[in-house]
């Protein structure tokens, strides 16, 4: 049960609350669902809503998203139109008006589609920790996590070159549904051959997967059905069973969705 909710007005104050044992509350769209339904001891929350962590900055190719920026704010920002397909695939408008960028990084799969996109964009996090402010690659946080008293204050990444970003999500319903397979990729093609590629898979396994095997297959190869089919075989993915789909089904349809993500059909 929630026994206190702090609403600090600065990142430093929010961080101090974490150090004192409070749990961060972003939009609440994940944490509150648990608190509403389950017993489980006393909990102190620190809300990030007023901590000055919202806002979108675009400086040349450098994009900075405040940790508490809502998904709806991303959706509304024309400068981030390449993320709109991703964001609109997540939950529903009344949820996206609450859910935050940093919150999405820490929800369990098959949620966290924005995290998949940001990982494909090789994002970095601004973290306020015991030793002060620092930067951490998202990739490291996705595998290693953060300390309980680390506060993510912002996410930074380099905006992808024109049409270099692909996002594709297969779900049970077209709108408002958890992922069965999410493919997020930053990919460039020069003279018909794949130049640079970063490929991230969500929805399939317990955690986001950086598909390095597939990346190796794709790199330097012609971007066609045959290459993509081989790429789909290149990683050892352990798909999961959940209410959305069985592990068997996920494994079976992943190659199809990878093809659709990269080739559009």
């Amino acid at each position: 049960m929630v026994i206190s909710v702090q609403t600090p007005d600065s990142a430093e104050a929010a961080h101090a609350a974490l150090q004192a044992g409070a749990v961060p509350l972003g939009g609440g769209t994940h944490l509150m669902t648990r608190l509403n339904d389950r017993a489980g001891g006393d909990l102190r929350l620190v809300s990030l809503r007023r901590a000055g962590l919202s806002g979108i900055g675009v400086d040349g190719a450098t994009v900075t998203l405040g940790a508490a920026t809502t998904l709806a704010d991303l959706e509304d920002d024309a400068r981030l139109s390449y993320l709109s397909g991703c964001v609109r695939s997540i939950a529903s408008p009344p949820v996206r008006n609450l859910a935050t960028v940093a919150g999405n990084l820490f929800v369990p799969q098959p949620y966290g589609d924005l995290a998949a996109a940001l990982l494909a964009l090789d994002a970095e996090l601004d973290v306020l920790g015991a030793g002060g402010a620092r930067r951490e690659p998202l990739e490291q946080v996705v595998t290693g996590g953060l300390r309980a008293d680390d506060l993510v204050t912002a996410v930074r990444f380099t905006a992808p070159a024109q049409s270099a970003f692909r996002f594709y999500k297969a779900a049970r319903r077209r709108l408002n549904s958890g992922s069965i397979v999410t493919v997020a990729a930053r990919i460039t093609v020069e003279d018909g051959l794949v130049g640079d590629v970063r490929l991230v898979l969500g929805g399939l396994a317990r955690r986001l997967v950086r598909a390095t095997g597939a990346e190796r297959v794709l790199l330097g190869a012609p971007l066609n059905a045959e290459t993509v089919a081989r790429a789909a075989e290149a990683d050892a993915i352990e798909p999961v069973d959940d209410a959305y789909a069985s592990a068997w089904y996920r494994a079976r349809v992943y190659p199809v969705h990878l093809r659709r993500a990269l080739l559009g059909a």
Binding site: V2, V5, T7, L25, G27, G28, T29, M32, T33, N36, L45, S47, R49, R50, P93, P94, V95, N97, L98
Partner: peptide, 11 residues
């Protein structure tokens, strides 16, 4: 529009 069930009102 927001889902009011997920918002601690003090926030």
């Amino acid at each position: 529009p927001v889902v009011s069930c997920l918002i601690p009102v003090v926030t």
